[in-house]
Structure formats: C-alpha cells, structure tokens
Nucleic acid binder design. Structure first.
Lengths: 262, 262
DNA sequence: TTTTTCTTGCAAAATATTCCACAATCTGTC
DNA sequence: GACAGATTGTGGAATATTTTGCAAGAAAAA
C-alpha cells in the first residue's frame, strides 16, 4: 500500500467513525503508530482532520445528532471491549441484524468489512456505514424515536418480519436467570421480530445489565445462543448461564498493550 | 505491446483502483519497474495521474466521499432561496413527503416545525430532523445507496406505496416542456411511488435543471402542481410552464448577507 | 505522583534518481 | 536491398533520497 492510499484510508475511516484512536488507525491501515502520527500531522495540515490526544477527529461542522452513542454513554471501555469481542464472532459474508442501542453500536464500529449485509433500525448505525460501499446496508423503515435515533413502529416490525439473516446482534435492558428484559416497551415487538428473523442470536450486555430485570420481558434465556459481556460480570450468573448451555464470552479488559497483532 | 498501449493500460487500471503501487502496475502490464516509472513520469506530465512514493494515484479528488456534501457545493445560495420559498408553501399539520437530493434538503432545513409529519427516504434529511421531537419523522426503509445517502430498492417503493401524504416535495435531474426527468434510474420507481402517494406535488428545481433533459423520464409536466425555482431560470420556459397551468414560484434572489437560518 | 501520549533523533528499509548496457527500430548511405 | 550509425525503448545496478519503525526524553493528562 502506498502512503497516499494509506492516508486516504485514514480519512475514509474517520468519515465513518468520527473519532479514532491511534491504535485503532494503526490496525486498520496496517502501519505503525509512528507512521499514523506522521500521517495525521500531514492530514491535519491539509485540512479535514484534527489531531487530539490519543487519536484524531473529524472536523465536520455538522455535528452528528447521535454522537452521544459513541461518547455519552456509561461503561464506554467495557462496551468497546464487548464490541471488539462480538465483532470477532462474525464471519465474512454473513448477513447481520444489528439492534439499536449503544452497546450494539460499538459492535458496529468494529465490524469494518466483515459482513456483506447489515440490517438495522438504528440511525446511528446506518450513518456509520452510510459511506461504506463494500457492504450492503439495509435500513428498516419506521418512525424515528427522537432521543435514541431508533426506528420504531409497525413499519419496522413488518420490515424485520419479512427478512432473514444469519445472525442478530442484540442489546437489552437486563438479564437474570429468569430471562432477558428490556426497558423500552416500544422496542419489544421489534426485537422479537429480529429474534424470529435470525438463525443465531447474540446478546451484547455489559455487566451492569446482569441480575437487573427491566420492565418488559423480551425472551427466554435459551433463545440466546451467545452472550458477550465484560470482565466485571458477576461470576455466579455467568456460570448459571453456561450451565443452561448458553455460550458466554467475556471480553478481555481493555488490552491496551497490543502491538502488531492485526 | 507498444509503449502507447502500455500507458493506456496503466491509465485504465488506475481509473479502476484509484491507487496502484509500482509493483502492482509492473505485474499488470508486464513491464519492469523502471519502465513503469518512466511511463508514470510521462503520464504525470500529461495530466491525469499523480506520482506518489511507491506508486501513483488518480487525480480525481473525490471518489469515496459522501457525494451528497460534495454535490451540495453547486448553486448553494439558489438552493437556499428555493428552500425558503418552498417551505413557506407548507401549512402546519400537513404531512409532507420529502424526496432525496440536495435541493429538497434545503427545503427541509427551512421546514422547522411547520409540518406535523414528514416522510422521507433520505438519510441526511432524517438526520436533520432526528432530534426534533415535535414532529413525527417517518423514514422509508431500504438499501442505503452509499454515495447519496438515499434509501433505495423495493422496500422503499413498498413503503411509499402504502402511505398517503398531503404534499410531496420533489427534486429532479432536468425539466423541459416535454416532461420531468431524472438521472438516477434507481430513484425513478421510488419517485413515482411518491407521486402516487401525495395529493399535491411540488418540484424544487434550480435554474440549471431547466431545459436540460436527463436520461430517465420521470413524469409528465402536468403531474406537477407547483414548481419552485430561482431567479435565474429562463423566462420563456417559466412562461411555458405557466401557460400549461402550472404554478411557478420564483424564489427571490438571496441578499448577500445571510440571516441565521440554520 | 503515575500513566499516557507526543516529540525528536536515528538506523533500517523502501523508494527515487541517475547512469549504463543491451536490444529493437529507424535513418541515411552505399 | 544491405549495412553502419543514430535513436529510442527496456532492464538492471549504483547511489541518493524519502519513508518507516523504534526508542528515549519531554510534555501532557489523570
């Protein structure tokens, strides 16, 4: 890869994710941190980037309405780890349903070019992939739920009920040994349609969701094939889930000291 | 293979891949690295290439970017004027279908809180309203067309065919006395579904669209109830449209000093 | 403080430039 | 038409330049 091409890929990548760490960029373009630093300096001089501590950010004046999904959340590093671990479960050329929600958003950020087809009802996720022309992104229609940027309503349910996908990557409000629950009643019907449409179900739940039931029941535990969580998830509950035959993947705690392992 | 033929193949290849390393080009045209270097030097002098360290790149600056923003650089002030004038036509509590495209996007910017319901298949428009919780924004589903951020495909057509709205605000590629045309064949079916779904049809077309037919015919002239354009639209064509009973609104030329309108 | 990130300098690798030898084609002369 | 010399195209090698990756110290954040 030429230097020009590398810089171009950095720009394109940033267009998608808005902000990226040096390590992230380094992995993405297969170059050392030093090279990324130099590239970013050049690109910053050219215009469209702004370097920050630890990475670079796009200088688009039109602020993304849903930037909150990337930043304003709790347990960001845990969700990052979950996102990385969950994305690793997806094979190339699979069709993937992506739920709305911050945790799943982090999965989307790591999906890169793994999946051939992505189906979602989340505007932030759609925006993330909007300029990626190697993937086919299908957006379920519906009414925009303002605060979350999620598409809801009967149109959304109908869209999912007509689709089939290899995998669904889901979020939820809480999980106990009695089942998986969600707080947004509006989303329950949609999530159930997702569950029906996918062959394999992966739930991404950070540790705060464990042992905490939400208002509306979503599905039985055994509906989930795999659950991805972070290292702070309570041991006994994880063991209980495994005893029921559910694969539980505990994302390693922020492996910062990663050199070239991409 | 002659030298000319080789150079032509280099150019053609670069048109496809945008970037190419010397080694890549060498393999592709079956010549030594030295020869490639010389060819690139010649081609660079001729114009359409730029040599870089390790290879060459095409001098088309924008291929991978979000074409929506790139296209938006033309006739911005005209489109702003059209947007303002067209938004003024919309009464409160109407349901409005918004087409994709830059001109209609400017209408959307001025709609503020006039309409109660907005239906669109444009991702940029959806993002614009996504945080406005006084309006109901309905996004038609579909496959994201990367360069334009438009939702396309049968899902989109179906979504529109099931809806009804008071007004549709449309864009197009060109208008002549023979009819209205659009360059994106992919969008034709969707636009026709919009036309069917709306009681009143407003076309927003800046002056560059006048007298210029595009590839695909969209609809007859009399399908349009109102056409909004800017003050540079050719007089005779405007008169011709009015003679056919179409209301033509010419947006006043924007003052140089722009108010806070966005 | 401690940790992380940035800058700077340096050596190694990759790449560009220049030069030279060889082959093919063209040119003019015999 | 055949030949020697000139011209051009090609591939390779030697040398200069740029780029890259690493590491140590400086600066910034936590």
């Amino acid at each position: 890869m030429t230097a020009e091409e590398r810089k171009h890929r950095i720009e394109t990548y940033l267009q998608r994710v808005e902000f990226a760490s040096l390590e992230e960029l380094s992995r993405h373009v297969n170059a050392s941190i030093s090279t990324i630093r130099r590239d970013l300096t050049t690109l910053e001089a050219a215009g469209n980037l702004r370097r920050t501590h630890g990475g670079a950010r796009l200088v688009t004046p039109k602020t993304d309405e849903f930037a909150f999904t990337a930043r304003d959340t709790h347990q960001v590093s845990e969700k990052e780890a979950i996102g990385k671990a969950c994305a690793a479960l997806i094979d190339a050329n699979q069709s993937v349903i992506l739920d709305a929600g911050t945790t799943v958003y982090h999965v989307a950020r790591h999906l890169e070019e793994r999946a051939l087809q992505i189906v979602t009802n989340s505007l932030p996720v759609a925006n993330l992939f909007a300029s990626a022309n190697k993937m086919e992104i299908i957006l379920a229609g519906g009414v925009i739920y303002p605060r979350l940027g999620v598409l809801v309503g009967p149109m959304t349910v109908e869209a999912y009920s007509k689709l089939r996908a290899s995998v669904a990557i889901m979020g939820a409000g809480g999980i106990t040994l009695e089942g998986i629950t969600n707080s947004h009643a509006l989303l329950i019907d949609i999530q159930r349609a997702m569950l029906k449409a996918a062959q394999k179900i992966i739930f991404c739940l950070d540790h705060t969701k464990f042992g905490r039931p939400s208002v509306s029941p979503l599905c039985e535990l055994d509906r989930a094939d795999t659950i991805v969580t972070d290292s702070h998830a309570p041991q006994e509950l994880v063991a209980g889930l495994r005893a029921r035959g559910i694969e539980v993947i505990v994302a390693p705690e922020t492996p910062d000291r990663l050199d070239n392992c991409g």
